[in-house]
Design a binder for these strands. Structure first.
Lengths: 214, 214
DNA sequence: GTATCTTAATGTCAAACAGACAGAAAGGGG
DNA sequence: CCCCTTTCTGTCTGTTTGACATTAAGATAC
């Protein structure tokens, strides 16, 4: 995930989600999310999936006073490795595992927001074609499987995955081309199809730890 | 759904979702949702399900100026038939079909909010125990089926529904009591179980109309 | 050029599941 | 006591799932 290092108090030096305030009264909040992503992280990629995650407005979440944050979940493939040195103070990539485990400390209630975002992504992978937003324009089925395995944190059977993914109508479409790696049989390349809602869904294996309350 | 009639411009006389502004800088937005529900609609029921739906902040959505609304989805059973005459101007129940079809005109972008809310409810019925929030403390399986049929707008087979609902562990628990109607065999009464996430989910029958893009 | 290694693609099979529907159980009313 | 209604319990068939075997198509080593 993309985090910036705070240069001012409060939480100076801690990592935080990129964000900021609305510019003027006429700015749409989605536009503002795009702008902040560009300004704070120099990120202006194509194929950017951006969806509203939720709004966080607990009274004490910002010591400076009342701040209500509308969080957006952004997903994009082929991200520039170290975010290019710009005025964007210190933006950089952090492993989600490091953040979730608490090894990387986040400012404000941003850990909560991050947790919600990951939950959202995990769930949406089942019922929507969101996984293709993690991939490039064309991809192999093994690529897609890696997305599911990484986000869900599980291992999947390649043969069954292959079968199920292709059964969902309109999810992925073959391009007719192939990609050959250094080893092994060349893999057929696919691209995202028109479907956004998966029928049937790709259900993730039931984790043994009981999910309990929400 | 619960709507109030606007007494002031803009949209005077049109129906709108109950809502209002934050009281003071220390008020939590969820608390504000509860308060507005109580103030505008005299609604203060037990067993009230309230979850954040989304935030709407398009520049022109309120002609008076920039207003950002955080929408909450509320669901509760046993609602008072005509909302008792209080200072709550003209609050009343409207059929969702009337609103969705456009027969009942809504102020601002509230039709969009309502549509999103119904979509959310329909989806959550599949994967969460939300349906029990529509029911009383104890209910029969037929009651629960009526919730699913009403919200999804489909007909379900009582025998298959009976089987599937009882297979989900922790969804509903038998109370040991029965309810006898005027006709027919007495039905066993159930109550909501501890589970909030349904495993396996209750998938709704695939509607014939293609869902297309989102 | 052939063996071998690696990954992709296809196939097989038993168990579980889904939808459609039959029938039995348990009440009330003529 | 028969009929009607609603609830509950089965049955049956086709589909899907998860586990695993097998074949296909390249690259590389020898």
């Amino acid at each position: 995930m993309l985090l910036v290092e705070r240069g001012v108090d409060p939480y100076r030096g801690a990592r935080a989600l990129p964000g900021g305030f609305l510019n003027h009264a006429g700015e749409d909040i989605l536009d503002a999310a795009h702008r902040e992503l560009r300004e704070e992280a120099d990120l202006d990629v194509a194929r950017l999936h951006l969806e509203q995650l939720g709004t966080y407005g607990a009274p004490g979440r910002d010591p400076r006073g009342r701040v209500i944050s509308v969080a957006y979940l952004a997903i994009a493939p082929e991200l520039p490795d170290p975010v290019a040195g710009t005025d964007a103070a210190d933006a950089g990539w952090e492993s989600a595992a490091d953040v979730l485990s608490g090894r990387t400390k986040l400012a404000f209630d941003h850990l909560r927001i991050v947790t919600d975002g990951i939950d959202r992504a995990r769930g949406k992978l089942e019922h929507s074609a969101l996984a293709t937003a993690f991939c490039r324009e064309t991809f192999t089925i093994a690529d897609l499987q890696q997305v599911y395995e990484a986000v869900w944190g599980v291992q999947l059977d390649p043969r069954n995955f292959y079968r199920k993914v292709q059964k969902v109508p309109g999810f992925i479409e073959p391009t007719g081309q192939e990609r050959r790696a250094t080893k092994g049989r060349p893999a057929r390349l696919f691209q995202a199809g028109p479907t956004t809602v998966l029928h049937p869904p790709l259900v993730r294996p039931e984790s043994t730890d009981s999910e309990g309350a929400r």
